[in-house]
Amino acid sequence: MNLVQRFINPMLSKEFRLRMRSKKTPWAISLYLMVLGGIIFTFIYLYNNNQAYFDPQRSREIFMMLSIFQFAMVSFVTPGLTAGTISGERERQTLNILLTTNLSPSKIIVGKWLSSLSFMTFLVIASIPLYSIVFLYGGISPSQLIKVFGFYIISMLAIGGLGILFSTLFKRTGVATVVTYAAIIGYTIGTYIIATIIQDITQISSMSKTTATYWMQILYSINPFTAILSIFDEGPVVALNYYMGGVSSRGPQLPLEPYWMFISFFSVITLISILLAIYFIKPVKKKLLRRK
């Protein structure tokens, strides 16, 4: 067996083949680009209507819009791609056979997870021409562009990890998909609302602002929408300007910039989700906690 074969995950190569052979795939790519392109071109049209000059500030806003829409699409599509991977095998009655092969549970989970996400990555890469059109107008630095794509990748990994975890936990794909959407929506809205409540309370009460603002910053940093806005120096977390390198006299500093806080936190979510999925897919599990 040569070196390349040794490192190819059989699950991954089979999934690639199945995915790209499906008649739905070209339709999914077209639909994705049509929706994203339709929204963004409508924005460009409305923003630049009857204007005879380029305004870099407006171009930046359009770029932000595109990034937020793309993130919304990633959040919408990724659960659909991942939440059915293990439960789908179970429903198709192929999981038991897989579990009796030499494929380890980790290879099954990682193979399924990466193959689903590779299709999502493919969709994001396919949208690069849309970015290049918006990027042409200026107002965006290359580092911001790289950060946005880094943000997508880590979000996909984490949302995909959650999708795989719920797909392992729930027998039905429908339930796993709904729970994944609920978890993502609940997390996004929940962290934002709690951070906002803390912000309001610190303004009207005499409670310890130091601790409260610290948690508020953390919550805003790990919220996907406020985190993506922070890439463009926008949003509540940037307005507070507490993070390291900013004005430090107004409260405790975060150990990292909001963007890197988000990346770190979502990396941890990814890791935990995948490890739990590997544990739960095992047909015979060792007890996680032993009673003494």
Partner: peptide, 13 residues
Amino acid sequence: GYMPDFFGVYDNL
């Protein structure tokens, strides 16, 4: 080599 009572196959393979 295990063959369960009910088993599925992959479409498109």
